[in-house]
């Protein structure tokens, strides 16, 4: 079980968390979901990772609209940190604003994906995302101790 990859879900919308949780359950693979509900909590966790006190997640699903500390702030922090920037971050957004999409890529997001409204679409999209990032893409996976050395 400890070998299962961890997916960090940064999402403040309860409905989206519920929908994504269902999508995770329907995925054929295995993964831990680590949910944090706001930007501050996400940053706190990444600080732990930076210090080697926590394992880095294999994938981050990041909502942009998070309140005080937004998704873009989290993105900037992580991608601006040489110890963390290899962690793949997929921005999930319901925003269609060009400037948000451009900003996310500009800050180093690995992908920006629109959250489908329909559940079946969401299941499909998330399934493909997890397939790709957790199963197909080769990742450098530093261990928690490796990050310290």
């Amino acid at each position: 079980m400890s070998d299962w990859p961890t997916v960090m879900l940064v999402e403040d919308s309860a409905a989206d968390v519920a929908a994504l949780s269902r999508a995770f359950r329907r995925w054929h693979g295995d993964a831990h979901v680590h949910h944090v509900a706001d930007g501050e909590a996400a940053l706190a966790h990444f600080h732990q990772v930076h210090r080697g006190r926590a394992r880095p997640p294999e994938l981050v699903l990041l909502d942009l609209n998070l309140g005080r500390t937004g998704g873009l702030d989290v993105l900037a922090e992580v991608k601006g940190d040489s110890a963390l920037r290899r962690i793949p971050i997929v921005v999930l957004t319901s925003s269609l604003a060009e400037r948000d999409i451009a900003a996310a890529y500009g800050l180093g997001a690995n992908a920006v994906v629109s959250k489908p409204l329909e559940l079946p679409d969401l299941y499909r999209t998330l399934g493909r995302l997890l397939d790709f990032w957790l199963l197909e893409a080769s990742q450098s996976r530093p261990s928690a101790t490796g990050a310290m050395s």
């Binding site: 919308s13 309860a14 409905a15 519920a18 319901s94 269609l96 559940l119």
Partner: peptide
């Protein structure tokens, strides 16, 4: 327009999601 596209769509998504849950 931004508010409409994002902030209003957010609760709408919620309604949609929960309606979908109900259907499931």
């Amino acid at each position: 327009a931004y508010v409409v596209s994002h902030d209003l769509r957010e609760p709408l998504r919620g309604i949609s999601t929960y309606a979908s849950f109900l259907l499931e």
